[in-house]
Amino acid sequence: MNFTLKIWRQKNAKAKGKFVTYKLNDISSNCSFLEMLDILNEQLVLKGDEPVAFDHDCREGICGTCSLYINGHPHGPDTAVTTCQLHMRKFRDGDTIVVEPWRAKPFPVIKDLIVNRNAFDQIIQAGGFISVNTGGIPDANAILIPKEDADYSMDAAACIGCGACVAACKNASAMLFVAAKVSHLALLPQGKAEASDRVQAMVRKMDELGFGNCTNTGACEAECPKQISITNIARMNREFLGAKVGSQKKRVSSGGGF
């Protein structure tokens, strides 16, 4: 198969970028999208040009490293896959393919198609965890968790943190990512203890980082490679409302320590 590629090239975070057009011939339809880029890069290197920088690692759709906004879709035209699982058979021979980096204020471009998604880590660090230290834990079967709850929790926990939701959203909102984490933990009894603080802290961080608001367009859900549902966003809104309305004023510790 033959393709014309229009790829965003940007030397570094500060440089001005532009689209560069490349022609690529004789690509197997069984080739994955990233393997196609490997072939392009091999050709570029041999010509003495710099290869196109893109993020990738596991190449089996689970690490969440790969990104790319391909012809108007994060992770390309196929559904429920990441870019590394996208195959060239999903395109037609002779197609022009436009490849862009994720675009969002909190995801600045580092180079070419690579963006900095550290904002997601910061949101998790703000509260996306259960506060337990290692050791001294009761038996795993001491807590009964209805299968239904565990399944819904797992649905949300399947998020790979790739950022496609942000890339797809016309508002660059990170609500699906945050909602997936909030839901994952809020649905489990272990996570309930600090659910109220968690949702508030994570939303605060999300806002602070400059992500947009959710306007319920559903683009995130449509493009999510793990098909995480926007019912999680509703759940987060519910959790948030409950936390804001229901929580007491912060208790001032009365001390009593050392």
Binding site: I137, P138, D139, N141, L144, I145, P146, A150, A157
Partner: peptide
């Protein structure tokens, strides 16, 4: 035990175990 406490959603049976 540790992983469950951290919120790992392991597969469960209908009884919750």
């Amino acid at each position: 035990d540790q992983s469950v406490a951290l919120g790992v959603p392991f597969a469960r049976e209908y009884g919750g175990l």
